[in-house]
Amino acid sequence: MKKTLFLALLSVILFSCKNENNIKNVERAFYYWKTSDSRLQEQADSILKTTNTKKLYVKFFEVEHNELMGNIPFSKNRMNIYDTIIEIVPTVFIKNEVFLKSSFNELDLLADNINFLINKYRTEDFEKGIVVKEFQMDCDWTIKSKDKYFYFLKKLKSISSKEISCTLRLYPYKYREKMGIPPVDKVTLMCYNLLNPLESPKQNSILDIEELSKYLSGTSKYPLHVDIALPIYSWMQLYQNNQFQNVMYNNHEYLIKNMKKIDDLWYEVTEDVQVDENYIRIGDKIKYEQVTKETIEKTIALLKKNIDFDSTTTIALFHLDDAPLQKYTNEEINSIYTSFSK
C-alpha cells in the first residue's frame, strides 16, 4: 500500500515538473521581415528598448528558381540597426522549387553564393560590433525535396563556419520519421500559419489552438535544440462576389470602422472605401484574422506542456513592425517572454 502511494505521489511530481517546464534563460528576439530599405519605426524601437531585446532574425534576401538564370536572390532587405541590438541572425527564405529543380552541383554553387551574399550584406549594412554566429535557412521542404535540401544545409555548414539553423513547420516536427531531421545545429519551430487560409473559413489560419495541439500532443523530445517563433501579426482577407481577392496587412483600424460582424472571423463592408491599393465596396466580405493576448497565453501553456525546452532557448516574435505592434502594449510583449520562465 505504501509503495503504491509512493509511486502515485512520484507520478504527480513528475507530471507537475513536466507541466512547469520553465526556460531558465529566455533569449528575446524578433524577426525583421521587411523587404525594403528602412529604419526601425518609433514603436518598434520602443519595444526593443523596453523589452531589452538584443537579437534579431533579419531576412537578408529570398531565393527562387528561374529556368533561364538558375537560382537567383530577390527581395533583398536593407536596414539600419539601432544600438539596442547586439546579435543578428541572417535569414534567407528559399522557395521549395529551388531544391526540386536543382542538381547537386547547382546546390554547391547556391551554398557558396548564399554564404558570399550574407557576408557581403553584413559588411555593408551592419556595424562591426554586431555579433553574427548563426545563419538561418527558411524553406518549406517536402518529402521530394528533402534529400537535396539537407545536402545543401550540410554544404552551407561546411563553408560558412557558422551555426546553421532552419525553420521547422509543425508537420515535419510531428512527422519526423517521414520528413527527416534536418542536419543543422538547431531549429526554430514556427507556431503559426497552421492552415490554408482559403480552405479554413471557420478557423484562424494564423494560429488555432486546437490545430496546434494536434501537432504537439503525444510527440517525443525532438532530437535537436528547439527555439520558438510566435506570431503577433494580423491580416484581412478580402472577398468580392465570394471570390478571394487579396490579403491586407495594414490600415485595419481604418477599415474596421466601415464593416459589421456577420460571423466568427467574418465581416461585411458597410461603406465604399479605399485601403492602400484595394477598392472595397459595400457588401464585400472580410475575414479578419488576428492573434490575441489570450491566444498567445494558451499557446505558451501548450508549448510548455509538450516540449522539453533547453535551459537557454530563443523566443522570437514575428515580426518587428509598427502595424502589428500597435495592437500590443510594451508590457504585453514583455509578458510573452516572461511567461516562458514562470
Rank of each mutant, 00 (worst) to 15 (best):
K202R: 14
I94A: 05
G180D: 06
L117Y: 10
E199K: 13
T91G: 04
Y267M: 01
D276H: 11
I286H: 00
W266M: 01
S234E: 09
T53D: 10
Y337V: 00
N113T: 13
V58T: 15
I232H: 05
V131E: 08
D321E: 08
L117A: 07
K304V: 02
I232A: 08
N52E: 15
I47N: 04
I333C: 01
F126T: 07
K2W: 11
L100A: 06
L56C: 13
N21M: 03
Q290Y: 09
I256Y: 05
S103A: 13
T329D: 08
K148T: 02
M69K: 14
E268V: 06
K59Y: 11
V131P: 00
P182G: 11
P73R: 15
Q240C: 04
K285C: 00
Q274V: 03
C139K: 04
F135A: 03
T299H: 02
I206Q: 05
F30Q: 08
V63G: 02
V12Y: 14
G283Q: 11
K101G: 04
E268D: 04
I209M: 07
I282C: 03
S341D: 05
A111D: 11
E277Y: 07
D321T: 06
K3P: 00
S145W: 14
I118V: 13
S234Q: 07
Y121R: 12
Y254D: 12
K257I: 06
I336L: 10
M69V: 11
K54L: 02
A44P: 00
Y215S: 15
P182K: 15
I280E: 06
L255V: 05
K293N: 07
Y171D: 04
M259I: 15
L107N: 06
K287P: 00
L238W: 03
N242P: 01
I315G: 08
K59T: 02
S36G: 03
V12G: 07
E277M: 10
R39I: 11
K285L: 04
M248C: 10
I262A: 10
S103K: 15
C191K: 02
P90D: 15
N52W: 08
W235N: 05
Y267W: 05
D147C: 02
V26C: 10
D208Y: 13
L56K: 11
D322A: 01
K148I: 12
V92A: 12
K59L: 06
I256K: 06
S311I: 09
K55V: 08
E297I: 13
Y222H: 04
Y328L: 05
L100P: 00
I333A: 01
I118T: 12
I114Y: 07
Q136A: 10
K261I: 07
L107E: 13
Q290G: 00
K18F: 03
L9R: 07
S75C: 01
T312N: 13
S200E: 06
Q43K: 00
S220Q: 07
L224D: 02
N115T: 01
Y233K: 12
N105A: 05
D227K: 14
C139P: 00
S158T: 07
L320R: 09
K157E: 03
K128N: 09
K34A: 06
K157F: 01
D45N: 09
S341G: 03
K174C: 04
L168K: 09
I13N: 09
H319C: 10
D308Q: 12
